[in-house]
């Protein structure tokens, strides 16, 4: 796949026919600058990476690196100031229907005036489904995240971890091609986090979901993914693309004891620390 510039949207049709070679998600030279002139802040610079079908790619970087900006650009929630994002070969503008997002702040992404069921069903109202199909999808996706029988509760009656499960169920019911997750487990406790990580792995293995997972947690990025993309800070750009060849199924204890795991997490952690120090040095040089 070439990253030739400028991209021509005219060959979308032919690209669609080559699904086998075209990556599902193709991020080409995406850059983003907030503001203009003196106060301009470059958050992303020439980001390029690809996500293949069925792959779980983790993006990890120092805090404040612009991970959320990246996710907003990739999802189409915010247009990037340069570059393009292609989904199944088609350049996206706005959020494509094949894509779902799970946000970090579950308490603000769910709707407190709707029951769990209604929250999950809400995006489905835009799809042409019969009432029965809709109810079936809601039931099924709630079961997939382990929330059977919780449909008539309200989100605020559930724990944080369960609320995030609802948000995941909502994404699943929508049946997206790609699931984007923006630090989804950053505000739950450690045990809940481990449970939710294993839930994500199960979704990937059982449903073949393609997932782009943004996190600041090194262990999490290695434990979950097939590939880890390490970001630099200010502006963020991909400084390493590391294959994670850990055996599947993964296990919170056994996998993390493997030499390969320990090496990988060390490698990623070192890269992030270097990137963080580099950013700090550049900041003080400017100041």
């Amino acid at each position: 796949m070439s990253a030739a510039l400028p991209p021509s949207p005219s060959n979308d049709e032919s690209a669609n026919e080559m699904n086998t070679v075209t990556p599902l998600l193709d991020v080409v030279d995406v850059g983003h600058v907030y503001g203009t002139g003196q106060t301009a802040h470059e958050a992303l610079r020439a980001m390029s990476f690809q996500v293949r079908k069925g792959e779980l790619v983790a993006i990890v970087g120092p805090s404040g690196a612009g991970k959320t900006t990246l996710l907003r650009c990739v999802s189409g929630l915010m247009p990037s100031t340069s570059g393009e994002v292609r989904l199944q070969g088609t350049r996206i503008s706005g959020v494509p229907a094949e894509l779902a997002v799970v946000f970090q702040d579950y308490s603000r992404s769910l709707y407190p005036w709707m029951t769990v069921e209604k929250n999950v069903a809400f995006p489905l109202t835009e799809l042409s489904l019969t009432k029965g199909e809709r109810a079936e999808r809601v039931r099924e996706s709630l079961a997939q995240v382990g929330l059977n029988g919780m449909g008539s509760r309200y989100p605020w009656q559930l724990s944080g971890g369960m609320q995030q499960r609802v948000a995941i169920a909502r994404a699943l019911a929508y049946r997206p091609e790609v699931l984007l997750m923006d630090e989804p487990f950053a505000s739950v406790d450690a045990q809940t986090r481990a449970d939710l990580e294993d839930l994500v792995l199960r979704l990937k293995n059982d449903l073949g979901m393609t997932i782009l997972f943004v996190t600041h947690d090194v262990d999490e990025s290695v434990y979950l993914s097939d590939r880890v993309l390490v970001l630099s800070a200010n502006p963020a750009t991909v400084i390493a693309d590391i294959d994670v060849l850990l055996p599947s199924p993964r296990d919170q204890i056994l996998t993390k004891e493997l030499d390969d795991f320990v090496h990988l997490r060390g490698e990623v952690a070192r890269l992030i620390r270097a990137a963080g120090e580099d950013a700090k040095a550049r900041r003080s040089a400017v100041a």
Partner: peptide, 18 residues
Amino acid sequence: VEQTQLDSARAYNIRWTR
């Protein structure tokens, strides 16, 4: 209205009347 709630709606292409 919470920005994340609007973002969620946008992520799922909910039409504006809804």
